[in-house]
């Protein structure tokens, strides 16, 4: 494996429904450490499936996928890998409704050996970074869409992941708020040198990335 590559995928295949639906049909992809890559394609093209494979939310049928030096086909404890390496940002913020902003950001840290006060300290830093220090005690329903997505970014950063995976992060926001979230992500990538992989179907959003990968019918288009 090339040292500079954080993601190496070879001939990755994945089908659903007992082989009736082919989601990924031989994907070959390399992503360098610190790169900002956007994955673009129409709905049903397999782009989200690809993102889920990189984030170890799902297992491939055949092929090979190595992320941060972990062979995800062979690896048994994928939750440990996700906890250590991956930060997810979803289209819908997916915050836990009965927990405060602060508590939502602490959620990923339970799998780390951290005390409650260490968790709190880390969450406070992250919320300051996303500019929500004044809304710590608010519930997700008391926030605007953009604010919720900023909480989700803080949550994704909680365990200092090497890769941030964002699935349509601006998909449910208006264009102005969306632009703000994208700036935040780009800033994160530039200042912290985090690898950022973003799925979108919006060409304008995709163009912010260093490189754009087009997926169609489960294959990467050159």
């Amino acid at each position: 494996m090339n040292k500079e590559n954080i993601v190496e995928i070879q001939n990755l295949q994945k089908s659903f429904d007992h082989g009736k639906i082919t989601a990924l049909n031989g994907i070959n992809l390399e992503i360098k450490k610190g790169e900002f890559v956007s994955i673009i394609g129409p709905s049903g093209s397999g782009k989200s499936t690809l993102l889920n494979m990189i984030g170890a939310l799902d297992k491939a049928d055949t092929g090979s996928i190595v992320v941060s030096g972990n062979d995800l086909i062979q690896k048994k404890d994928l939750s440990e890998f996700r906890s250590r390496e991956i930060g997810f940002i979803f289209q819908l913020h997916n915050l836990i409704p009965n927990l405060s902003v602060l508590e939502n950001v602490e959620i990923p840290m339970y799998e780390k050996k951290m005390s409650s006060s260490q968790m709190r300290k880390r969450a406070l830093e992250l919320l300051e970074y996303v500019g929500l220090s004044d809304k710590l005690k608010r519930k997700p329903t008391e926030l605007s869409g953009g604010e919720r997505q900023r909480v989700a970014i803080a949550r994704a950063l909680a365990n200092e992941p090497s890769i941030i995976l964002a699935d349509e992060p601006t998909g449910s926001l208006d264009s102005k708020t969306g632009a703000m979230i994208l700036n935040r992500l780009k800033d994160l990538h530039e200042k912290e040198n985090v690898t950022l992989i973003m799925v979108t179907h919006d060409m304008d959003v995709a163009s912010l990335a260093d490189r754009t990968i087009k997926v169609l019918d489960g294959k990467i288009q050159n």
Binding site: E80, N94, I107, E111, R155, A158
Partner: peptide
């Protein structure tokens, strides 16, 4: 269900 999916995505083990 969805929330449990998120907990898994952020690295929670099945046991937790």
């Amino acid at each position: 269900t969805r929330e449990i999916g998120v907990l898994k995505a952020v690295g929670w083990k099945d046991r937790r």
